[in-house]
Simulated assay, not measured.
Amino acid sequence: MTTPRWSVGINFDSKCNARCAHCCVSSSPDATANLDDQLVDRIVDQLLDCPEVREIGLTGGEPLIRRRRTVQLIGRITAAGRGVSCVTNGFWGVTQRAADRVLSELEESGLRELTVSFDDFHSQYISVDRIRNILEAARDRRIRIVVNVCVSTTKDASGLLQELGASLDGIQVTKFPVVPAGEARHLEDSEFRRRPITEGMLYCPGTQVIFHNDGFVYPCCSPSIFDTDMTLGRVDEDVRELVGRVERNALLGILRREGFRWFLDAIRSAAPDSPAATVTEVVSPCELCSIIFRDRTAVEAIRPLVDEYLARNRATT
């Protein structure tokens, strides 16, 4: 019996009611990138045919703009015995009663975890009251709520969290730094909370295959990778083949075994003047990954070292 081990995300639509300056996937009311419903249905069907898939995450854009469609997808996934998560900005929490109505639909469809993105950037479009309504309504529901807070140098969301007060009791709040991806590339450079690269930043936090609304499949859920050529293929290819490429990709294999240190050392040797060779500070391991793999000249320069590494490891296994 195969043990379920894959976590897969589907970013099926870029449309969002908000236009946040830090949006790492450039979502907005007039964004048009999307995966059509028929294609998403096929992707979900193929994922559910894979016993290795343990969880499917739905994100955007704002998935609950199309609430009926999202609830339908959640129901199909949970009916097949798989876990499902969803990300939202909470625009629908107009009143506590309205929030409870949406949470009831999500709960009945089988959803057990809902991530609410809220911070100083979102608060220009979504009021604190709407998020509070959701948190309070969730106390009567079995859905686990996680609040994701994106922070920059001048926007740490401390005031918003204080306003939410006791409604956050028992709620997991995760803070993470803004990364220079998507719309956030236009922020002042001083907004990014970069730190010197430490040993702990030299390892990938993990992979989650993402079917993205730009038509490509990526080996990671970090928006930083969407700016690189590190794709597994097109979204309309066979799902099992796409996910299997995570295991067979040479660069990802080296990354899993050696971490980013191997790539930095190789690039500093083969392309010492490249951006990846000279980087000393990053926001996170995900930004470091992006800097390395979007540097096409550097990646091409280390190809002989990659081939040598693979040949050496084949000889010893």
Rank of each mutant, 00 (worst) to 15 (best):
M1S: 03
T3F: 02
V8T: 08
G9P: 02
I10W: 12
D13L: 11
N17Q: 13
V25A: 09
S26H: 11
D30F: 14
A33C: 03
A33H: 15
D36R: 01
D41Y: 10
L48D: 06
G61Y: 05
R68M: 01
L73V: 03
R76T: 12
R76Y: 08
A79N: 11
N89R: 03
G90Q: 07
F91C: 07
W92L: 08
R97Q: 03
E108M: 07
S109I: 00
E113K: 02
S123T: 04
Q124E: 06
R132A: 15
V146K: 03
V147Y: 00
N148Y: 14
V151R: 04
S152D: 00
L160W: 10
E163V: 04
E163M: 04
G165F: 08
S167C: 09
P180C: 11
E183F: 14
E183T: 14
L187H: 13
S190N: 02
T198W: 08
E199K: 13
G200C: 08
M201D: 00
G206D: 15
P223W: 15
F226I: 05
V239G: 05
R240V: 03
A250Y: 01
G253V: 02
L255W: 15
G259D: 11
A266H: 14
A276L: 10
A277V: 13
V279F: 01
E281G: 00
V282D: 02
P285M: 05
I292C: 09
D295P: 07
A298K: 07
Y309I: 15
L310N: 04
L310V: 09
N313Y: 04
A315M: 13
A315T: 12
